[in-house]
Design a protein around this nucleic acid. Structure first.
Length: 705
DNA sequence: TGGCTGCTCATCTAGACAGCATGTC
DNA sequence: CTAGATGAGCAGCCA
């Protein structure tokens, strides 16, 4: 284990100064090792090391030294939007050297052409993949790529994109950063990169299991053979109390939202000691004021937080999650019970991590519960130990008995995580990959496509069979044209640019060409039924009601197959949710009616916004005028959750579904009406907002003219 | 007949990327 | 192989 004092670093003074200003005196062993392997000399590297071991700084040094020596541009790619903005603020300090730092991702988007003004761009894998398909000229100037959280390659859903991006930068400078993986040698060979691997962590990690003993007693056994006895009637409760008594914070992971919530409640009712804390009272009130969440969820959470406990999952609105994360980092909130959201996302460490469940329901293998991958456990355990606060972090797994304890200990604590493998081996992913290649190249021979495909991690024989099938399928369905000289058709190019799954495009095409215009629910159902559509769970009770609820004939016929029927009904539920949304049904009512959280609603709306826009474009490129018209209006309504009559009003910034409705009911129906009745608008919206809205309305009208 | 208790059995289950128009964070 | 919380439904009991 070697620490390298900054003085010994052969690096530009300007860089040193910035590092010193940040309080960095020496580089840690991982960083030192990366430098020894050529980080500052543009060596292609694959760094595998635990969470929180300072990989971001490695990336920063790599990027900056490259820019200083060679100029050009650098792109830093992450798998999550939240990480993209986190890295953006971290990399911002380098603007002191005159470099411009920018970011772009789905929810924080920047015009393609504008990106040429930045030297360092932070983005997501999907966004970069999408950008590549359009191939703006500045992209060729980018010659340094950081691929963060590279182990996402192993994710069945997101992995194919990570792999596609990696394949494209075979001949550029590359720095791949990953959690610890078993087969790093194989992967680095594939990437043509030098491996840098260590187990060094800034805060040592103690892993263990908690086992029930006699009655009201638990034993915790750690990997260093230490063990402690704890009293209590519930393993999680007992351990949480133990940690709190020693002044630590706890992150508890559970495998379902409902269980996370009830565990949080159980812990809260056991936390008399923090009740009536003034700070917590304040946070509780702040939660009640959040404006993007449902009333019930705010009240539930506000009550819990009064005890210093919160739950956290994707059903919660962004606003609620932000508050919880913020006050946990400030150590006001002592315990968070979370689903796996927090395992992979932003940096949110705690002294202790409790992994409540090692099993997880799996829809594919019904009635069968699978054990979570070791990699996932390591991600959760990796959150243990706060640098600067805790001397050591601890992660414990809850088990049921002694024999399970032995097995779990061996598997999760003593074994390395699974090897990571290509996830391109399925039709949808592979065909998408080919489509992307043809799109960015503009015109390619099938040999060149094969050359790209052979560069993937996929087994060569599998590549060959998929390639043949894929090219035929894409040709048969009119995405590409030409036998040897391949180009995208107009339809194919549109699909590539919209970034929809080719099977989504085919679904649109098939049903739209075959059917006449129908009602909104039919269009929404079609969007939701595509492979890109949002999936919602449907209970047995809902299932049959939903079928009767549909207000008009749908484009898709009711399937006989049980699984397909479920997808059909799930899509119908999405259709009904969005239909309520665009009929201006109150948000609280929607959440209650369909049993979803405000975070779920938000994500369904976002996806359906994208898909209705895609439906519009697909209809247009196929020259289906009636469908295009219907999708166009529908898309505008889905964006803001409004009836058609409010479309003009919401064009004014600051006016959403609620304000637009208020104005409309008071006979202000167009931006022009706002300007004509500024006093009325001010009395309805308050004078400051009214003033601003009037100004923006004037600008919009001027823009239209 | 009405209401409560306790048991059995069926039911249910994580997460999050993308377009475009905005302004350019 | 490798789950567990929840809630509806119902039998049984008592007043």
């Amino acid at each position: 284990m070697q620490f390298l004092p900054l003085e010994q670093l052969n690096i530009d003074e300007k860089i040193l100064k910035i590092l010193k200003d940040r309080g960095i005196e020496k580089l840690n062993p991982v960083q030192t090792e990366a430098i020894n392997k050529g980080l500052l000399k543009d060596e292609r590297l694959l760094v595998t090391s635990p969470t929180g071991s300072g990989k971001t700084l490695i990336a920063e040094l790599g990027i900056i030294s490259h820019l200083l020596n060679k100029g050009g541009k650098a792109i830093y790619i992450t798998p999550l939007r939240a990480l993209t903005s986190e890295k953006f603020s971290e990399l911002k300090v380098w603007e002191k050297l005159g470099y411009k730092v920018g970011m772009t991702s789905g929810d924080y988007d920047t015009d393609d052409a504008w990106l040429k003004n930045y030297d360092i761009i932070i983005s997501t894998y999907e966004k970069i993949d999408s950008l590549w398909r359009r191939n703006p000229s500045w992209l060729k100037e980018v010659d340094y790529f950081v691929l963060d959280e590279f182990h996402y390659l192993n994710d069945p859903h997101r992995g194919p994109v990570v792999e596609s991006v990696a394949v494209r930068i075979r001949y550029k400078n590359l720095l791949a950063l990953s959690a610890t993986i078993q087969n790093y040698e194989e992967i680095s060979k594939w990437l043509n990169a030098t491996p840098v691997t260590t187990d060094w962590r800034p805060v040592p990690l103690k892993e263990g299991v908690i086992i029930p003993e006699k009655k009201s007693s638990y034993k915790v056994i750690f990997s260093n053979n230490e063990s402690i006895n704890i009293k209590g009637n519930d393993a999680i409760l007992a351990y949480v109390n133990y940690v709190l008594q020693h002044g630590g914070q706890v992150l508890v992971f559970r495998n379902s939202r409902k269980i996370a919530e009830s565990t949080a409640r159980k812990i809260a009712s056991n936390m008399g000691l923090f009740k009536m804390d003034k700070e917590l009272e304040k946070i509780s009130n702040e939660i009640k004021e959040v404006d993007d969440a449902g009333t019930t969820e705010k009240e539930d959470l506000a009550e819990l937080v009064r005890s210093g406990v919160a739950y956290h999952h994707a059903g919660l609105s962004k606003g609620l999650r932000d508050i919880i994360e913020k006050y946990f980092i400030q150590r006001k909130i002592k315990v968070i019970v979370a689903t796996p959201t927090l395992a992979a996302g932003v940096n949110l460490p705690a002294r202790s991590v409790i992994v409540g469940d090692i099993y997880r329901f799996n829809r594919q293998i019904l009635g069968f519960n699978e054990e979570i991958p070791i990699m996932e456990y390591k991600q959760m355990a990796g959150r243990a130990g706060r640098p600067g606060f805790d001397k050591e972090g601890e992660a414990i797994i809850v088990v049921r008995n002694k024999s399970e304890a032995d097995r779990v200990f061996k598997k999760y604590i003593l074994s390395p995580p699974e090897p990571i493998e290509s996830k391109l081996g399925n039709e949808a992913s592979f065909y998408t990959f080919i489509l992307g290649i043809v799109s960015s190249e503009g015109r390619v021979t099938s040999d060149e496509v094969e050359d790209y495909a052979m560069g993937t991690l996929l087994d060569k024989d599998i590549v060959k069979s998929y390639l043949k099938k894929g090219l035929n399928w894409l040709r048969d369905n009119e995405f590409i044209a030409g036998d040897d000289d391949l180009v995208l058709t107009k339809f194919g190019k549109r699909v590539a640019d919209l970034y929809i799954n080719p099977f989504t495009a085919k679904t649109f095409k098939d049903y739209l060409t075959r059917n006449e215009k129908s009602c909104n629910v039919a269009y929404l159902h079609l969007c939701a039924y595509t492979p890109d559509g949002p999936r919602v769970s449907v209970s047995r009770n809902e299932m049959y009601d939903l079928v009767d609820l549909s207000p008009c004939p749908l484009f898709i016929e009711e399937p006989d197959d049980e699984d397909e029927f479920y997808n059909y009904v799930s899509a119908l539920k999405v259709g009904m949710i969005i239909n309520d949304w665009i009929e201006e049904v109150d948000e609280d009512i929607i959440l209650g009616r369909y049993g979803i959280g405000s975070g779920d609603l938000r994500s369904i709306i976002d996806t359906m916004d994208w898909l209705t826009y895609s439906g519009f474009n697909i209809s247009r490129v196929l020259d289906l005028k009636e469908h295009a018209e219907a999708f166009y209006i529908l898309n505008l309504r889905v964006k803001d959750g409004i009836k058609e009559e409010l479309i003009d009003l919401v064009k004014v910034p600051g006016i959403g579904r609620k304000r637009a409705r208020l104005l409309f009911e008071n006979n202000i129906k167009k931006p022009e009406d706002i300007i004509m009745n500024v006093d009325k608008v001010k009395s309805l919206l308050g004078s400051r907002l009214g003033e601003k809205v009037a100004k923006d309305a004037a600008r919009i009208i001027a823009g239209n003219a």
